[in-house]
Design a protein around this nucleic acid. Structure first.
Length: 495
RNA sequence: GGCCCCGUCGUCUAGCCUGGUCUAGGACACAUGCCUUUCACGCAUGCAACACGGGUUCAAAUCCCGUCGGGGUCACCA
């Protein structure tokens, strides 16, 4: 039988990296065994529905290159793939369980349950709902008056169940610990534990890989599988992703707070920064999974070939943006200049720094900037910080660089002399320029550093950047001379 | 509170199942040096961990028990 895995997001917002990682493990396992990866939308609770959330989730999957074999936009033989459209299936399953006596009508009221819960809590005991005997008269009366009821699973007492979890190992639980749980609300809405099992059975899911918060849920679910007479899938519960430098579980609700601290937890935030899908894939796979003692960089194909659940760590891993950044850099190094140009262009366009449409000449210019930037360009949006001055008319000076390199006696005079050098260098190319500047330094008795650094700040405004001659060539003679002039003017005016 | 999961450098992890080869290995980050006109890259070096306490054993990061810490679940949420 072919391996079938699924990821079941609820369309309530953005994908966060913990969820993406869980999805990735599902996808990787399916691809590893040549099986199917299914996307199923958990939208039973309309209350929590958020507009366009689904579109963003799907975009996230597409960006990651995690293609699904069945699901939204694609359909498939075992659909529909929206829980909101599967009511008939849940109804049928619920009826069957009522008929077989596994499930009963619960007429209890909110108040009654709350009171019971309080009472049990005060005895420092876990709350467990148990069926209360109900007289035939009452039952008849309730039915006659159309009193609402939920459907509850009658949990068999005195049994011990075990989940053979592929990540956690064997986990045991006694049914006495489980209260009779609701599978269908009075309004007919199926609850997660029930709907999820029905779907997994119907969709022939073979491996349920999900967040570890569902580990405890697995036991009630086991009961449902059994009552339905269905075959059990394999289970694998993935540990949570903790906050940066901490063991505390990362919370989607704290997204804004993390952002304020400069920590990104949403996939979209990394997409916008200009991270590479392959880097994200690599990072997420390594977060909680390892192949051996040494390999850090994995291609997509390698991941598919080598991924296995038994090498997923059973303890939580905390999100490490530094490591992501490093992996990103490694993947960036593999890109050709042309690929980098493609990645960088949208950022320039967004800031109005690129012509629309992009001309071949402009593309060439971007290519030369990207080439000059080399490994300094770690994420595509870096073009806006590291390469901005190549695309602006006016020069903006970094105050620290000005202070360190330009606020020195004799600098204006030297800049004027260098301007003369630039004006007369023929041809105006990298090798000739380098020779000319060297000759200038030597003839005036200046150490190279004291010439090159001021000239860099005068022409780029920055203290750091690509090789100076690269900058001079890309900027062009006229632009460099104009910038030197404006720098001298600035120094003279004392601003 | 009951039940369940988890606990190796700051972080990701190898080692744990099948005790000795572990004075615990690799990577990120950090620090220092080299390279160099700056930065980045690269190279070299350094810093740094078996949560704690018992037990078993000739020998424990590895097996057992307890404590502490983190997390989950106990919803007519997912």
């Amino acid at each position: 039988m072919s391996v079938r895995t699924r990821f079941a997001p609820s369309p309530t917002g953005f994908l966060h990296i913990g969820g993406v990682r869980t999805a990735l493990f599902n996808w990787l396992l399916a691809r590893h065994f040549g099986g199917q990866f299914i996307l199923r939308i958990d939208d039973t609770d309309q209350q929590r529905h958020v507009d366009d959330a689904l579109g963003r989730i799907l975009d996230g999957f597409r960006w990651m290159g995690m293609d699904w074999d069945e699901g939204p936009d694609k359909g498939g033989p075992l659909g529909p793939y929206f829980q909101s459209e599967r009511s008939d299936l849940y109804k049928k399953a619920a009826d069957a369980l009522v008929a077989s006596g596994h499930v009963y009508r619960d007429y209890s009221t909110q108040q009654e349950r709350d009171a019971d819960r309080e009472a049990q809590k005060s005895h420092k005991v876990a709350y467990r709902f148990r069926e209360k005997p109900i007289s035939d008269d009452d039952r008849a009366r309730f039915e006659a008056e159309g009193r609402p009821f939920g459907l509850r699973f009658r949990v068999p007492l005195g049994r011990s169940m075990v989940v053979h979890d592929l990540i956690k190992g064997d986990v045991e639980q006694k049914t006495d610990e489980i209260g009779d749980f609701v599978i269908v609300r009075p309004d007919g809405m199926p609850l997660y534990n029930f709907a999820s099992v029905v779907d997994d059975v119907e969709m022939k899911i073979t491996h349920v890989i999900r967040a570890e918060e569902h580990l405890s849920n697995t036991f009630p679910q086991l009961l449902i599988f059994e009552a339905l007479g269905a075959e059990l899938p394999a289970f694998a519960h993935v540990p949570f992703v903790a906050e940066v430098g901490s063991k505390t579980k990362m919370s989607k609700r704290k997204t804004e707070e993390y952002a304020r601290r400069g920590i990104f937890v949403l996939l979209n935030q990394y997409i916008e920064k200009g991270y590479l899908p392959d880097a994200m894939l690599n990072y997420l796979a390594r977060l909680g999974w390892s192949l051996d003692a040494s390999q850090e960089i994995f291609t997509r194909d390698e991941l598919i070939e080598k991924f296995s659940l038994d090498r997923v760590n059973s303890s939580p891993a905390s999100h490490d943006p530094d490591k992501l950044f490093w992996i990103q850099g490694e993947w960036m190094k593999k890109l050709t200049v042309d690929q980098k140009v493609d990645g960088v262009l949208p950022y320039l366009a967004r800031e109005g720094l690129a012509p629309d449409p992009v001309t071949p000449e402009f593309r060439k210019r971007v290519a030369s900037v990207v080439a000059a930037l080399g490994d300094r360009l770690k994420v595509f949006s870096d073009i806006l910080t590291l390469g901005r001055y190549f695309f602006t008319e006016t020069l903006t000076h970094d105050p620290d660089a000005v202070k360190k390199r330009l606020r020195k006696d004799g600098v204006p005079k030297m800049l004027a002399e260098l301007d003369e050098v630039l004006a007369t260098t023929e041809p105006y190319d990298l090798a000739t320029l380098e020779k000319a500047v060297h000759a200038y330094a030597e003839s005036h008795g200046h150490p190279m550093g004291q010439v090159v650094n001021p000239l860099r700040v005068a022409t780029t405004g920055q203290g750091v950047g690509p090789g100076l001659y690269d900058c001079l060539v890309i900027l062009g003679r006229e632009s460099c001379r104009a910038r030197i002039a404006s720098t001298i003017a600035m120094l003279g005016s004392g601003t």
